[in-house]
Design a protein around this nucleic acid. Structure first.
Lengths: 253, 253
DNA sequence: CGAATAGTGTCTTTCAGACAATATATT
DNA sequence: AATATATTGTCTGAAAGACACTATTCG
């Protein structure tokens, strides 16, 4: 199929980060203002190139998480690969997008060398009449990341990653409401969560911020899987991940 | 963070394919025997390097699908990225793994230039006492691909990709039974499938191979999402995808 | 006490799972 | 007729969703 002198082309490998958190009961994503071309001055997802040829991909993602957001030890998982030939004017750049979930944090992000980093409501970027435009194909990456987070709330314990070490059941409910954009009945949610085996375990009582009866504290349980799953009653006919596939690389290990 | 002369490293980009199909009511994967080093003579997933710098990743996957398996127009979706620094002795090779689903096909794969391609029961590769060893990290890629297929049967219409243009409900049931490795009640399955809105639509009657009442024919419906979802009653406490994340590349678009 | 949140109990509907019964084909 | 598969119907238990009600805090 190819002649003997053919050599495979090489590409630049990057990582991009969709870092989500909850602020004011709304889902926010961390954006940075680009200081260099291309797209200088535009907002973009944090990310960057592999540091050296021996750096593992996840290691690069965690390095960027620390360098650009000052965040450590967070939940991190892969979203997918974005490598369309024309997506970056600097050449063939293939980016591995990652989803990171941050617990509630103090407003200013400490230790960030990108001073321009700021939390932005996801809605302001993804809504049809969005007023925030992102560089590259980062709007799609964000959309895919949010979709993945929404889907995983259904049958994994991902929601606890949005909370601190300990949390109340109503805090957990706020996570579902913010990420899914729905309202849930607190009483049914309470029973549902407790019936999910291994999802949460008790961790002592607490008093609430303002008024009302104090709530019990819990921490994340051992189960990664969530059974029975949390179900979004009315499926919002959105497209399911897959159908648009990715592409690349033969004979490789 | 880096000095002015720093240049990002480049990597070789590959695609690998987990091509699944049903044969004798068992899940099979297409393997090829490697003709060159490394791992010469060992079995591996079909795949290869990007053909040229301008080739899209999905295009490369479809090209390999045609070249190595003689397959066209199949369901194709991304599994993930495998780029551990030491995974390929030839250097830093990052592979984008894809999942392809093939409908029932005649035994020999026509038009394949890799004559060594053969369908192998997935169980023979993944069972703890497996007698088929794969090159590189292809065993893990296969495991991840099969997990992804299993998960997607629950809430998408992926199962129809295993069938031909038209199919009977019992054929669809065989897909679930083979991929999940469980036995399902035909009567409950029948009602369940028909209650899923937009999953399948009628396509005229047929007669069955041997004996028994002829079954109605259906074809895939418009829905990609499956609601209500098919549920695997007893969650086999397997690890949920995620938790082990991927890594790489900053400042990239 | 009144307001607000936490937590429990109950009822109705929906759906999964078991399984009887009927329908329509082949040999 | 015997056998085999397709399709429908019925019943039971688990769980979702609606919602009344009790418990415990603060001001």
């Amino acid at each position: 199929m190819t002649d003997d002198r053919w050599q495979p082309p090489s590409v630049l490998l990057a990582v991009d980060l969709v870092i989500l958190t909850l602020r004011d009961a709304r889902l926010h994503v961390l954006l940075v203002e680009r200081g260099v071309e291309p797209y200088q001055g535009a907002f973009a997802l944090p990310g960057g190139f592999l540091h050296d040829e021996g750096e593992a991909i996840e290691a690069a993602a965690r390095r960027e998480l620390a360098e650009e957001a000052g965040l450590f030890d967070m939940h991190l998982e892969m979203i997918g690969v974005y490598g369309e030939p024309g997506r970056d004017p600097r050449g063939r750049v293939v980016s591995v997008a990652h989803l990171a979930i941050a617990p509630r944090l103090p407003d200013p992000i400490a230790g960030t060398d990108a001073v321009s980093a700021c939390w932005t409501p996801v809605e302001d970027v993804l809504s049809t009449s969005a007023h925030v435009r992102l560089a590259f194909d980062h709007r799609r990456i964000l959309a895919d990341g949010v979709d993945q987070a929404r889907a995983k709330l259904e049958h994994t314990s991902l929601a606890t990653a949005f909370c601190g070490e300990t949390f109340t059941i109503s805090e957990l409910q706020q996570v579902y409401e913010a990420v899914w954009g729905v309202r849930l009945d607190p009483r049914n949610f309470y029973r549902k969560i407790q019936s999910a085996r291994g999802f949460i375990v008790a961790a002592g009582p607490m008093r609430h911020a303002q008024n009302g009866r104090p709530a019990r504290l819990f921490k994340a349980g051992p189960s990664q899987a969530l059974y029975p799953p949390m179900v979004r009653s009315a499926q919002t006919g959105h497209d399911v991940r897959g159908g648009h596939a990715a592409e690349v690389a033969p004979e490789g290990g």
